Simulated scan of single mutants.
Amino acid sequence: MDKQEMELYCAGCGIAIQTEDKASVGYAPPQSLEKETVICQRCYRIRHYNEASTVTLGDDDFVRILNGIGDTKALVVQVVDIFDFNGSWLRGLPRFVGGNPILLVGNKVDLLPKNVNRNRLINWMRKSSADLGLKPLDVVLVSAHKGEGVERLVQAMNEYRKGRNIYVVGVTNVGKSSLINRLLKQFGESEMDITTSQFPGTTLDVIEIPLDDKSSLYDTPGIVNRDQLVHKVAPQELKVIMPDKPIKPKVYQLNAEQTMFIGGLARIDFVKGERQSFVFYLSNHLNVHRTKLANADELYAKHKGEMLAPPGPDAAESIVWEKFTFKVPSGKYDIVISGLGWIALHGKGANVEVHVPKGVAAGLRPSLI
């Protein structure tokens, strides 16, 4: 049986290959079937032209895939974005995967400032996981981009899987496919190259990678957390809000009744408290603007989509704001904005109001640094 007669799947995103409808997912030109590794036209354009993906799976598809894991005996590897821990959390995972053990992997450790204590970070992730209803077997820190921690991850997977399959799961943009590609390249499996990009929803179906004669590693599609900020901006703006280099904290000494804008994506009002430092841990590409609280509404109305951007003018006009009010205790705390970063307050307490696009989550936690 030749390739024309076999059922083929894209090596990049896992979708079934078809050669009939150019406008549908899985399309590949007939001549491409002669190649050793077949990828769909969508993956080709993502890889070579960095085009945005407009195809996403529905919630039912995600539930089907996760429930399928619960019907097997496997090790589940949940990948989270350390920079956006709560925003990248996969809600209800233990319920979906049954009694299967879960190994927690914190990706993008290379983006954190160098003064972050790794052991403290691991302990913080364990506690935060327990608060969210999960007790992982272990916590491993990695950088899919730099290769840091990959050998440790392989050791942990081999230790805990006990000959079983491995399913790698996570929400969109946590770097699952990049991590798997790093594993493949490091250990000589160069035949497969899973499509990666900064755009949500790149992997469209389960991709199987054989580990031995009896077990495989499976890359699953990224589940959409709709409160993440990445879903509120245009694809070309993702490179501005998603850090690609170690974060350089921005420190501001603020008095009460001052406001800070993070582009046009968030507004932080220091309503009441003693003069203190607000330390912003954000993508280095984002601009922060200070003004008086009394002038904040006027400044935003005048400069949204321009000086206060991203998002650009069109998206800025349609934003509906939601307010979170925090009474920050005395001590060291972070105000976290899902998908954007966090603001550290190390003072004698403060009343702070945070305005974000409706649907984006904000919260308060003990300081990470």
Rank of each mutant, 00 (worst) to 15 (best):
M1W: 02
Y9C: 07
I15K: 14
T19N: 15
E20T: 04
G26D: 02
P29F: 13
Q31F: 07
Q31V: 12
C40R: 05
I46P: 07
R47G: 02
N50F: 05
D60K: 11
F62E: 00
I65S: 05
I65D: 03
G70H: 03
F85S: 11
F85I: 14
G87Y: 15
F96H: 03
N100P: 04
L104M: 12
V109C: 12
P113S: 10
W124I: 02
L137S: 10
S143Y: 10
A144T: 03
G147K: 08
E148V: 08
A156V: 01
R164V: 02
L184Q: 14
L184K: 03
F187V: 06
G188R: 08
G188Y: 07
G188W: 02
E191M: 09
D193W: 14
T196E: 04
S197A: 12
T202N: 12
T203A: 10
V206S: 03
L217I: 00
G222T: 15
I223H: 11
V233K: 04
E237N: 05
V240R: 11
I241H: 04
M242G: 10
P243Y: 01
D244N: 09
K248D: 12
K250S: 07
K250W: 10
Q253I: 01
N255T: 01
G264D: 06
L265F: 07
D269H: 14
V271R: 10
G273F: 02
G273W: 00
E274H: 13
R275C: 07
R275N: 14
S277C: 04
F280L: 03
N284V: 12
N284T: 03
H285F: 05
L286V: 00
L286N: 05
L299D: 09
A301S: 12
K302G: 10
G305P: 09
E306Y: 06
P311T: 01
G312W: 08
S318D: 01
V320T: 08
G331L: 13
V336E: 15
G339P: 13
G347E: 01
E353A: 02
V354Y: 05
K358H: 10
L364C: 04
